[in-house]
Simulated scan of single mutants.
Amino acid sequence: MVRLPLTLIELQRGERLGALLRSVRSERTMVDVAFEAGISPETLRKIESGRIATPAFATIAAIAGVLEISLDELWAALTADTFSPTADEYDKPARQRLAS
């Protein structure tokens, strides 16, 4: 299976997701949250740093459950775009946009 390059919107959403999870996690350790969610601390670290921009739904649902944030609240925070691309920008892979 070939994975398509991520769009700029997906990359930005991944960064927002990581920032949001870090802020909600607050003083809880990454290790505690990861183990309680049933994922590795390394996976949580990659999500929080934006290196995994499009994590699996089940992973996010598990983390959200541990952090006691609803998926609706999480999605609302992630889709509050400050970036307003043209219609073409949504479909153009990030690497292609950055190269032009």
Score class of each variant (00 low, 15 high):
residue 1 M to P: 08
residue 5 P to A: 09
residue 7 T to S: 15
residue 10 E to F: 08
residue 13 R to D: 07
residue 14 G to R: 00
residue 14 G to D: 00
residue 16 R to A: 05
residue 17 L to K: 01
residue 19 A to H: 07
residue 20 L to S: 01
residue 24 V to P: 01
residue 25 R to Q: 02
residue 27 E to P: 15
residue 29 T to A: 08
residue 31 V to P: 07
residue 32 D to E: 13
residue 37 A to Y: 03
residue 41 P to H: 14
residue 41 P to G: 02
residue 42 E to K: 12
residue 43 T to Q: 10
residue 43 T to N: 11
residue 43 T to A: 06
residue 43 T to Y: 12
residue 44 L to F: 02
residue 44 L to T: 02
residue 47 I to Q: 03
residue 47 I to W: 03
residue 50 G to K: 02
residue 52 I to V: 09
residue 55 P to W: 00
residue 58 A to R: 07
residue 58 A to E: 14
residue 59 T to Q: 02
residue 60 I to E: 02
residue 61 A to N: 08
residue 61 A to I: 04
residue 62 A to I: 09
residue 62 A to L: 04
residue 63 I to V: 09
residue 63 I to G: 01
residue 63 I to A: 04
residue 64 A to Y: 00
residue 65 G to F: 00
residue 66 V to F: 03
residue 68 E to N: 14
residue 69 I to F: 05
residue 70 S to Y: 06
residue 70 S to L: 07
residue 72 D to N: 11
residue 72 D to V: 13
residue 73 E to K: 03
residue 73 E to A: 13
residue 75 W to F: 13
residue 75 W to S: 08
residue 75 W to I: 14
residue 76 A to D: 10
residue 78 L to K: 02
residue 79 T to R: 15
residue 81 D to T: 10
residue 81 D to S: 08
residue 84 S to C: 11
residue 85 P to S: 05
residue 87 A to N: 10
residue 90 Y to E: 05
residue 93 P to F: 05
residue 96 Q to I: 14
residue 96 Q to H: 12
residue 97 R to W: 14
residue 99 A to E: 12
residue 100 S to T: 13
